[in-house]
């Protein structure tokens, strides 16, 4: 029986602990995800922003089912993904959920043309052949604004970074992805190209109802594309809600710190204030590392883990 759910993806108390046993030094644990609960509605984008090492990519990888959670659950269209055991279920999930990475080159096979990269998923997942296949390839190219005539016969190294990232997005469309996990998809791209890839993602969302989990360091691009934003620190989501509410009225000390550090080209870093910024950052980190379970709704939809002063 199909359950009716308003969320495409629901993450419930997700926790991931890595156990490290180095050759030298003592064994230790890294709590990469600490009791994370988030959800995304179909056709919406959730941006995950946060400290480097806070667990953003780990969260993305957990959703892509690349490993098992230590505890908690992730469900897709109301079904727990850990419970998908049959081959058909797993394949269907891997088709529905696609990852796009920071390095646009890493996911492309240098030995194959772009045509091959796009044809394979269409053959595999949509069983297309012959002229139907040719037409579908041209369609996905058009969707991501790649000129099929000049692109299809090229090899990945013959394309610019922005073009390669378009190919990655085209491939996700070709397999029929419903959710795209985009982990820093534009940070290696030109400013001008970055904008066009972001525009493209926004369009995929708006016209094709593709859902995005958008992982980024760049809070301005998160504001540009996302319907919700989650700020992560040390494995916890410390503040979340609609981007404009969070950005105009930040509550958590880490969110405030993050916003204060967004580069302003008119303010020169001259080393003055370096110590005070660093010590403020240290103080905020110490505060933010604490595990806090008091959640407060600041404005409708805008939540914060409230640290007691």
């Amino acid at each position: 029986m199909q359950q009716i759910v308003s969320e495409l993806l629901r993450i419930e108390g997700a926790t991931k602990i890595f156990h490290m046993k180095p050759m030298l030094g003592a064994a230790h644990e890294v709590v990469a995800l600490n009791n994370i609960s988030l959800s995304i509605r179909p056709g919406k984008a959730l941006a995950v922003v946060g400290e480097s090492g806070s667990g953003k990519s780990t969260l993305g990888r957990a959703v892509a089912r690349l490993f098992q959670l230590s505890s908690g659950s992730i469900s897709f269209k109301g079904r727990d993904i850990a419970g998908m055991r049959s081959r058909a279920d797993k394949l269907d999930y891997l088709r529905s959920v696609q990852m796009v990475f920071q390095d646009p080159f890493s996911a492309l096979n240098p030995a194959h043309t772009i045509r091959h990269h796009l044809e394979r998923p269409l053959m595999l997942h949509r069983k297309l052949r012959g002229t139907d296949l040719g037409k579908a390839v041209e369609e996905v190219c058009a969707d991501v604004e790649l000129d099929p005539k000049v692109t299809l016969e090229k090899y990945p190294h013959e394309l610019s970074g922005g073009q390669r990232q378009r190919v990655n997005l085209a491939r996700a469309l070709a397999v029929g992805a419903e959710l795209i996990i985009a982990d820093e998809p534009t940070s290696m791209l030109d400013v001008s190209i970055r904008r066009s890839v972001l525009d493209l993602m926004r369009r995929m969302k708006e016209t094709r109802s593709i859902t995005f989990l958008y992982i980024t360091h760049d809070i301005a691009t998160a504001q540009f594309i996302a319907d919700d934003i989650a700020i992560m620190y040390a494995g916890q989501v410390v503040e979340w809600g609609p981007p404009n509410l969070v950005i105009s009225n930040p509550q958590h000390p880490y969110t405030k710190l993050l916003l204060s550090a967004v580069p302003d080209p008119k303010v020169k870093l001259d080393g003055t204030g370096a110590r005070s910024f660093a010590s403020e950052a240290q103080a905020v980190r110490a505060l933010a590392r604490k595990v806090v379970n008091t959640i407060e709704e600041v404005q409708p939809g805008h939540f914060v883990r409230r640290i007691e002063a």
């Binding site: 922003v49 946060g50 400290e51 480097s52 806070s54 920071q102 820093e184 940070s187 290696m188 360091h217 809070i219 710190l257 993050l258 550090a261 967004v262 580069p263 870093l269 001259d270 080393g271 204030g273 370096a274 910024f277 660093a278 950052a281």
Partner: peptide
């Protein structure tokens, strides 16, 4: 060459200020 693209803005600011010092 693109030394801080993979960093969050807080760490980026700290590192760049450290470098300035």
């Amino acid at each position: 060459d693109e030394p801080t693209t993979a960093l969050d803005v807080v760490v980026q600011r700290e590192i760049l200020q450290e470098i300035v010092e």
